[in-house]
Structure formats: structure tokens, C-alpha cells
Design a protein around this nucleic acid. Sequence first.
DNA 1: GAAGGACTATACAACGTTGCAGTACTTTAA
DNA 2: TTAAAGTACTGCAACGTTGTATAGTCCTTC
Lengths: 341, 341
Amino acid sequence: MPPGLKDVAARAGVSIKTVSNVVNGYVHVAPATRARVQAAIDALGYVPNLAARQLRSGRSGVIALAVPELQSPYFAEIAGLIVQAAERRSWTVLIDQTDGQAERERNLVAGLRRHAIDGLIFSPLALAGEELTQRDGTPMVLLGERVWHGPADHVAIDNTAAASDATRHLTSLGRRRIAAIGVQDRASAVTAHQRLAGYRAAVASAGLRTDPALEMPVEGFHRADGAAAMARLLDAAEPPDAVFCFNDLLALGALRTLLSRGVRVPEDVAVIGFDDIEDGRFSTPTLSTVAPDAPRIAQLAVDLLAERLGDGPAAAGAPRELRVDHRLIVRESTTGATPRP
Amino acid sequence: MPPGLKDVAARAGVSIKTVSNVVNGYVHVAPATRARVQAAIDALGYVPNLAARQLRSGRSGVIALAVPELQSPYFAEIAGLIVQAAERRSWTVLIDQTDGQAERERNLVAGLRRHAIDGLIFSPLALAGEELTQRDGTPMVLLGERVWHGPADHVAIDNTAAASDATRHLTSLGRRRIAAIGVQDRASAVTAHQRLAGYRAAVASAGLRTDPALEMPVEGFHRADGAAAMARLLDAAEPPDAVFCFNDLLALGALRTLLSRGVRVPEDVAVIGFDDIEDGRFSTPTLSTVAPDAPRIAQLAVDLLAERLGDGPAAAGAPRELRVDHRLIVRESTTGATPRP
DNA sequence: GAAGGACTATACAACGTTGCAGTACTTTAA
DNA sequence: TTAAAGTACTGCAACGTTGTATAGTCCTTC
């Protein structure tokens, strides 16, 4: 049985409440008393019981982070960064994997964990729009989604602009038949819609014709999906001379198909991805991509949540929409080999 | 203010304890009463307060998983699998990233989270041996480490045998100068030591001479470390004709260096890794590797913890050591191109 | 026809913590 | 000189839940 305030109090010869005051850094405690209590705490190895503290205060010090899947390097990176940012506020992060299942996402939003968490940082995949209304009062910050006048704060890059940047990079290299891999029909696939819109805009503004045959739908956003989509593109009547993939995993899959069929990258087909995951820096060829400012996304998400959780005046305001920078990273898959590392 | 048992009880016209009994599925509740209580629960949207429950029962329903880093695909996969396995027992998993820092690992073992978690699944990197003694009573299961008569259960593959299998695959292809990438000096790097031992054993049993110049040390186990180590090998007087990398990330980094220098894989240098991460199935060439039975590792770790947490007789027994299977996966990086996918 | 058992429901006390109110003493201000 | 303000500490209640004890009812069974 681990020691409680009671045991510390008995050993130090003070009341329970005084020990509590010492633990919580209350100012009006005589130095001598404080030292005595602290000695007892150290001697017994007292650690506050968080459950009891939460029961009293209503705060758990735990926030949840819900992502579609941790296996995806981009989400793994975001998760790591958010954990770091939360640590600076001495919060613990509970990571929830939704696998993109609407049911699980709905549970989260409905507040399944209710009492257990103080706030939620959520990267939705299956849900969008009004479905994302947090039913109970738990503060929520959304990642990577622009919810149409949604009730929650959110942090995201400008997906449309970023997709345009990537596509424009391809047109600026003189490519004429530029394919897109990553199209999704589902109304909730907002990110895919935005990237498609950005792609189309850039294609059109380069004076090229958009061609439905070049817009490849995918089931998921994994390497296998990218590989399969690329195979279909190569088997078509008029194969593309460049591909914009909606994330790096798709791009790496596409790369695999191209190389295994002897298609030269970037000479025959240029490839650009999205996310700047580590894999793309070591693939052959290395992968051009669009890099969101992930550390900033993480920091802002945690900061926004902190504001909502604070007791200050900013706690309850209108939902805020924060935009984070992105930048184009040019590597071998679009411009060819660079000098050896 | 969310409703509590009290509110449900008032609405259903029963005592608080009866509601508690319904919630916990106690059998001796009259069907009519049960229905009335359930209706009240649904109407009010009652959700049990986990903090209060934990305070009473001492159990939080949360286990912690501590891994060096989530960015590493292997750990991300393990984490996902453990979360799934834990879910079947309706446990929540709190993921802790140690970044391989001894200080953080010590904190975990010392029981920093004490009251908050029921058990710990731990993949140590910086700590080994007696340092891994769990100070407070929290049950712990270790992953991937054989702690010398350590006090905790652990689950691991036979690293030495697996490393031998990988190396033997290279010798069986007729390779004569086989390098190893991933050597680590630190006494706590048990996994690296075991894989090195397996490598040496296989080299020796093939009648080849072990050569210190072929055993490449690394700082970490990332792509960049593999790339740098491979560069050093290629710059040496007698470059190898095959490389066994202690994990797939190192191998992918090595692959990058080889290909960017125009070295053919596997014709000039064969490469094999360890872990079977998804990246290796889509790299060019695809990566031969050793695949631990990760789902089984996850399942066993959770099962062991469950036994320790159970009130049954098995709760307190001698530490157990469970061995999990592995298998060799041969792909292009050792045997050349396969028919197109 | 009475004793024993199964069934249904309740009351009360804890789990460990903190907010609030209160006591006793000391210092400052009018 | 006395009221007011400040300091140092204590005691009690409450957060929401569940284990134990208890009490009444109904059904067996000898």
C-alpha cells in the first residue's frame, strides 16, 4: 500500500491539509514546517494519487490524441511532437488510434472517455462537418481539417495552396500529362478534396487540360494503394509524365511500381509526394515533397487546448482557425540525381 | 456537470447502489428494476466516472507502453498491435516515448506514474540488467530483452538465432565478405550484442574469417546511421559483398548509399535487414529481412500482464521468459528481381 | 409448518485529495 | 489602544464510486 497524505502527516507531526499545502506549493507555510514535511515526503516516497486528485478537481492532466493510425510515419511524427509539447505543460497524452473508422471517431466526439481526459486533439478521417460537434463539453482541437464553421478550434496547413505548389513544380519542369494519386469520393475526405482542388487549379493555370483519366482514386493512403494506382496509370492508353501523390506513402508505392517496371524517375515520370516523411529522404531516388511545419502544428494544437482549458477569459471564445506554413522540398524524384551525399 | 449514480438513482427511484449493481452487471437485480435503471441511464447519458472507480478499486484500467520512439515503424507497429490486444480486455494504453534516455527509463521503472497505471509493457534501450528492477509493485513485462535473471516477465524472439539465420542466408548465396551494421558498445545494448553474436557464429560456421573492419558501429538505429556506416564500408580497402543490418531502417539507409553510388544490389552487394517493416516491401529493391512474429509478441505481452494483474493464483510466480518465432523473408535485395508485381 | 436458502434492495463507510471555513496568534495601521 | 490585516495551521465535507453488512421477501425442502 503506497503512502498517502495521511502517512506523511503522521510522520511530520502536522495535519493532512498542511502536507497538501506543501505538496501544492501553497505560500503560507513556515520554512521549518515545509522542510519537515518535505523530509517525510522523501523518506516515505510519497507520490500524489492522481485519481483522488482528479476526483476532487475534475482535472486529470491527461489529454487524448486521436489519429487514424500510428503506423503512418506522418502521424507517428505528429504524435511524438504533440507528446513533447504536452510534456512542457506536464500533461500526459493518451494516444487513440481510430483506424479511420467512423464508429470509433463518433465515440470519441460523443465523449466516450468523458471523465478521463481534459481535452482532445483529433485528426479525423471518416467524419467531417457537423458530425464533429463535441457533444459533451470537452475542449477539442482538430488537425488538418477545415470544418465548415465547425464548433471546434483547428490547426491546418493550406492544403489547396500546398497541392498547387506541388503541381506547379511539376508544370514548371515542363511536364504536360500530370496525374494525381489519392482521389477519394467520400464527402468526409476533406483533405483529399482540397488537394485535388489545388492540383486542378495548378494544372488549369498552366494552360493544361485536366483529364479525369489522370485522377486516380485510392482506397487508403498507403504504399500498396499508391503502387496499385500507378500500375493502372501505366497500363492506360496515355501514361503520364509526372505524378502528384497526395501523401508520401502513396508516392513511395508509385515509385516502387515505376522502378520495378523499368520506368526511369524522373526522366520518364517525375514524382512528388506530400508530408516529408523520413522515408522519402532515403528512398532511391529521394522523394520531392511538400513539408508541413509539423512542429508548429503540434505546438499550436497544444497551445489552443491550453487556452480552452485555462480559467482565463479566453477559455470560451469563438472557434479559431490557425493556418500553418508549408514548403516545397525538391529532391531527386523530380529533378534527378544530386551530387552523391 | 455530468450525471452521476446519484442522478440516475433519483430518476429511476432506486438506491445508488442498485444503479451501481446494474452498471456492473450484478446478477440479482429484478428485470423490471434493471430496465427502469437502464432507461434512466440512457436518458441522462450516464458514463461512469473512472477516477472515482479507480480511487475505490485501485485499478485504473490503463496500462503503459514505453518504447524508445514511435517514429520507428517497428515500434509503431508493435504499439498498434498492443493497443488492439489491450482493447480486447478493455484496457486503455498510455504510450510513453523514452527517446532511449536512461533518465526517463529509470523514472518509469521507479514508478513515476505509480497510481495512474495498472501495469507496464516496456521496451528498454538504455537500461539493462538489475537496473530494470521495478521498485514499486507495478507489474512489468519487458519486450525484446533478455534480462539476466531479471525480476520481470519478458517476451522476445531469439535474437542470436535470428541473426544467424539472416547471415547464413548471405553465406548460402556464396557471399564471402559479409559486413554487419549496427554494432553498439554500450553494455545495455543487449539486442545489438545478441545480433552481433549470431552474425559472428554464422560467419564462423561457414568457414569464413570474422573481420573487425566489417563490424560497423552506429550511433542510433536510423536510416542516416545505416547510410553513413555503408559509406564507410565502401570507402574501405576491401568493401564487402554483403551486409547484414541489425534493423530495416539501417538497411534502407545502406541501400540508399549503395544505389546512389551506383553499386548494384544484390549483384555487387547483397543487403538483408531485420524487423520486416512495411517500407522494406516497397523499396527498390525490396528488402530481405527477418520478421519477428509481432502480433504474437503483442498478444503475449498483454496476456502476461493480465496474468499478473489477475487475482488468480498465477498472479505472483517466478518471472517467465517467452520466446516468439521469427522467419526469414527473402526479397530482391539478396536474390535479385522477382517477376513484376 | 418451520428452518434454511436464494433473491432483491438498501445504508453506510471508505478510497485520497482539496476547497472552504475557522482558530489562534502576530503584525500593522489609525 | 484597538481594530484590521496578515500569517500559520487545522478540521470537515465533498468529489463518485463500490465492498460489506443488513434486512426483508419469497421459495424450497424436510
